[in-house]
Design a protein around this nucleic acid. Structure first.
Lengths: 229, 229
DNA sequence: AATCCTGCTTGCGCCAGCGCAAAGACACAC
DNA sequence: GTGTGTCTTTGCGCTGGCGCAAGCAGGATT
């Protein structure tokens, strides 16, 4: 009987639903297992199913012709993706790949339609989650237009840190394999510039980094830098 | 009794509703009149009301510190804005200004909550409209990252043309006052670059332009250019 | 017709950051 | 331990496009 209707900002698909409903909804989907790097769905494919991550993480990216790629966002445990695309019966607007070993639940359109009809809170929560993402991408759109590249890298790193950071003795570890190329695709620059920037930050003691691994040693300095340049 | 339930892509808040419901919903709001350039709401203000344009046009833009501005989209007749922000009781993430003389209907949060509870189709339509906008801004985000500036100006002009174009003898007239600065804010560049680019296109016979006024003489050429550079 | 205001054009110099190239570092397999 | 492939670093040269400055254009006001 535990509900969370008092929360203002459900980031959760199941906010405001009874535990038993939640369990039933989860059971009505199929679980899918993805190995690291494996695509769950590809941009342009018909959106047959939507997903919720149980364990692991998905990387949503959008491809441009000639191989340029923008990372739209990461999807972690309890977060959903493609909900709207499948709801509307469209094509996936992005590609989703597993980052590390990932377990997801999948629902097809018919099931989703049925679930939404029976649980009005689901539609409400989808609206809320979508608003969140719309505002996020609009903000990043503005930043991409306005800010210098090092500032954008700082913001990207902080966003990923908030989403997938883990406290350690050295600082906050980005708890997913994150290459220089990934960070470049997330912040709108190139592999080379990210590498040079991280080197500079390492000299200042703000971060410590290795192969696909970054530890933010001084988050405060990074926040200041991301705000004022 | 005219319904449009057969349409797959409602861009309309009232898709799937009876005319009488539509009329009642419209009557439950307040009409607001905006003079050219007047702000309807400002980024950061508490989102008390949401809006639908009856006549005229709104410009949604997002401001960065030190005055840089990105135009997120234009909102024309029958289109809505701030629906999600008010639904969630947040602050407006953008600023809306009237372009030309504009008439809108406004609903406050209580009314919206009531309407959505009584008309499930409204929530569905909001989801669909929001998906549309999310995909649009994601696409533009990728383009901003990937494409050369002239290509982006071409895309921006074509998008505005599709939204607010009017056939004339000379070509397709952009039927709203559109300055070089506006086009720059929409395409992610500067006033100067837009001006230079339009001059070049004018020499090639693709457009004819004057003060806050653009006619696309050769849309096909512009489409080709926007796709291949 | 003169003035003003706002928007538009264009020459010019400058620089942030891109991307090649080449070398180094690390992870894993055999 | 040795190899192989991927990821990272860094020097270097180049350029797209930004933004100042100065002047032009055209609509509105007096």
């Amino acid at each position: 009987m535990t509900t969370h209707m008092d929360m203002d900002n459900p980031l959760d698909l199941f906010e405001g639903l009874e535990d038993q409903d939640k369990a039933a909804i989860l059971k009505s989907g199929h679980t899918v297992h993805c190995r690291p790097g494996q695509p769950l769905f590809n941009q342009g494919d018909p959106a047959k199913r939507c997903f919720m991550v149980i364990r692991g993480r998905l990387k949503l990216s959008k491809l441009h012709e000639q191989g340029k790629e923008a990372i739209i966002r990461y999807i972690g445990p309890d977060e959903t993706t493609a909900a709207l695309a499948v709801f509307k019966g469209r094509r996936y607007p992005v590609t989703a790949r597993a980052v590390g070993d990932t377990l997801v639940v999948a629902w097809d359109k018919a099931t989703m339609d049925h679930l939404i009809a029976n649980h009005p809170a689901l539609a409400r929560n989808l609206l809320h989650m979508t608003l969140e993402r719309l505002e996020d991408i609009q903000t990043r759109y503005l930043e991409l237009r306005t800010e210098m590249v090092e500032q954008r890298i700082a913001r990207a790193l902080l966003r990923i840190m908030q989403h997938a950071g883990r406290r350690t003795d050295d600082g906050i570890l980005i708890n997913l394999p994150l290459s220089r190329q990934d960070l470049a695709d997330y912040s709108g620059t190139t592999l080379y510039t990210v590498s040079r920037t991280l080197s500079a930050w390492e000299k200042r003691g703000w971060v410590r980094s290795g192969r696909e691994r970054i530890v933010v040693a001084d988050p405060h300095a990074l926040v200041l830098f991301s705000e004022k340049g």
